[in-house]
Amino acid sequence: MSAQRHKCLIIACGALAKEIVYLRRHLGVADEALTLKCLPAEFHNTPQKIAPGVEALLKEHRKHYDRVLVAYGECGTGGALDTLLKQYDAERLPGAHCYEFFAGAAQFEQIVEAEIGSFFLTDYLVKNFDRLVIKGLGLDRYPELTSVYFNNYKQVVYLAQNEDEALKQKALGAARQLDLDFLYKRVGYGDLATELEAFVQEEGLCGSAHKDQQTRQLKTKDEDHVSC
């Protein structure tokens, strides 16, 4: 079976790397059947770098793979990413950004509808809050800019992938630091899981890895979120 199996590539935003590795293992897909290549999560704040970054990887690797999934949303590239993907016959995750596909479009809209002043965090952003939000926005150098950036905001909404008390506390600390209310929502992997699962199923990659003990444990623990 492995002889005819398609070779697939995922080009991902660094902010999704860990989640994709987890899901790949969770779905029982062998690392070599679904290669992962990442770009820096810092591109978040400079979306004009996303399409050129993805293009560099596509240029180098597209020919070696049968199918390529780009694990980005539109991410503020102003259509540049979609134009590029058409050119290279690659596809991306649906939706505007990772908050939308983690929460699911309907839930995301519901949260924003209820409170437009919502600033979203994910597991990755909580872990890297200081680097990506505080330093990324220059608040380490100019803490007085906090009110300039967040004046219109009322709450931090932590869209958690995993139940993790330490991360929850850290997210709460982040909300306090920004002087905002805190809302916690355990959303899991949302559309990222659904899309990835559909992708590996279409390509027949499921079960390409030996299910070791660790994988089995992961699957039992999160049975409600992903199954394959």
Binding site: N45, T46, L137, G138, L139, R141, Y142, L145, V148
Partner: peptide, 14 residues
């Protein structure tokens, strides 16, 4: 041109 970034621009604007 990517020489200044948003936080610096905000300082200038201030």
């Amino acid at each position: 041109d990517g020489i200044l970034f948003v936080p610096e621009v905000l300082q200038c604007a201030g």
